[in-house]
Design a protein around this nucleic acid. Sequence first.
DNA 1: CTGTTAGCGCCTTCAA
DNA 2: TTGAAGGCGCTAACAG
Lengths: 322, 322
Amino acid sequence: MGTVSHVITGSVPVSEPLRRKVWAAIRVLDYHPNHVARSLKTSKTRTLGIIVPDMTIPYFPKVIRGAEAAARKRGYSLIAVNSDDDGDRQRDLLSLLRSQRVEGILLVMAAAPTPASQIAKMLEAGVRIVCVDRIPDRVDVDCVSVEDTDAASIGVEHLLAVGHRRIAIVTGPQSLKNERQRLLGYKLALDRAGLPLDEDLVWLGNLRPEDVSALCREKLARSPRPDAIFCTNGPTGLGALRALRDVGLKTPEDIAFATVDELMADDLFYPSITTVVQPALDIGGTAADILLNRIENAAGSDESVMVRLRPELKVGDSSRRL
Amino acid sequence: MGTVSHVITGSVPVSEPLRRKVWAAIRVLDYHPNHVARSLKTSKTRTLGIIVPDMTIPYFPKVIRGAEAAARKRGYSLIAVNSDDDGDRQRDLLSLLRSQRVEGILLVMAAAPTPASQIAKMLEAGVRIVCVDRIPDRVDVDCVSVEDTDAASIGVEHLLAVGHRRIAIVTGPQSLKNERQRLLGYKLALDRAGLPLDEDLVWLGNLRPEDVSALCREKLARSPRPDAIFCTNGPTGLGALRALRDVGLKTPEDIAFATVDELMADDLFYPSITTVVQPALDIGGTAADILLNRIENAAGSDESVMVRLRPELKVGDSSRRL
DNA sequence: CTGTTAGCGCCTTCAA
DNA sequence: TTGAAGGCGCTAACAG
């Protein structure tokens, strides 16, 4: 009965008594509309996808929840999947989400260099994508991320302000533009302070805490030691902290420490950790909103937007002035 | 052309040359099969759902990833959503997943008491559900969880072994069966050690760290103070640790501490935290496997299974013998 | 082995 | 305001 559809979608007026009867029947039969059939008919799934590298890294669940909330507010649901920072897996997931006919995809690119063509192809095919957190080179796509350069310079300037001069930076993979920009922020901050760049204090790491730990232990064994360490992201920061513990350096007495990205419960670390906090929920929410705007006003401009959200410095004991 | 379908699904043999031609066309046209239509036809979505209270709590992403991996291995994908421990939201999500025609649901029940009928109704309607982590009362359903009683008694026995006698327990909401069982494990451990139960040392909390903090601060102000605190889950443990910090008690010198559930990076806390670790990945994976077995052998037994996985004690400094 | 066909359940015309 | 009918893209069954 087509009338049932009218009642459910409310698209066509239906008389009160009939409507009541329909709802009654729905309840009695415990009827649940089949979204699959509806989607096939309307070619609208009201579903978005989000691909993150690994949702066991605390930053990503926050992004997802921000996006989920924004999507729900507009009647969409969100499918979250993990790429493990693997390019092939990312390709498969994009393809899967596309086959599932999500109406748009929030993509935190895999750290393994993603062939620009992978994204460009999807875009050309009309799949709507918003890049979150990690910004691709050379691809014209909507992006939402933290102000990367600022995130680093805010942290480094804080370390300078409390009196440190030999500040080492530990980065993630330089294949990520964000990481390059954070390194740039470090250099700018030093420059503005009139300090020379010491290449020996630039420690290029990756996103695996164990690797970063090993790197730092090795670097810290050399002298002269830096008097502060700044890390450009959470997993890297975790690795560096473990290295400090392993080599027996106390912070802030022996060496100061600050990192971009909150560690879970970092107020409970002893000493508590100075952190440049990314507005993760907001990043996810903003990205979802941009995506939904594109979906709902297909007429929108062709200009792709690039939103950069401000990070915030949370000073802890690890960079306390002595 | 039905033949295309044969080529893609591989269900019917197709001659080599024709098959090559089809694949070529698929590539050229950048064809992506429409899973929506396929699902409508076959009434199989090859998708599972998982509802967790809040995936920003570190334990849950691990469960999800365990389930995701198990599902992927068998060609299924997984939709993860958050209930915020809210009964109404959980109802909506169950209904949504059902409408989306997921083939089964992994459910970590909301802490807000879930009307047994909510789950029972779904079950009757033929929706396959496996309860994960939190076990419902009175509902006959497949369940996978940690050995709750053991999780508590292992931790408490450890505290006893290092010499503590006045051990306080801080629990989550007693509306959760798991929490009642963990409390039971505490009592059993004391009993086996021949110690009497002191009701003043049973601190009934909830899953909000702030509330637990306040509770603990108040309890700790009284004397005599316990000489150890045992917490039955992560968020509760977090709250208790903050209370210790706030009232200036050092661990293990002033008071010993242990908790069920890993805190993120708890090796970096100073002192490092003694933890009863739950096999989260395994819990998720096992639950997904049980669910998929039910789906794939619809003929399976009617007996519902209850799997309890063993937790593991990880001793840190917070309970060190002085 | 290959091509044709009938729905899956729903929503959207369109006619009554 | 109501009901009937077509078709979304796919696959399974069947005919060639």
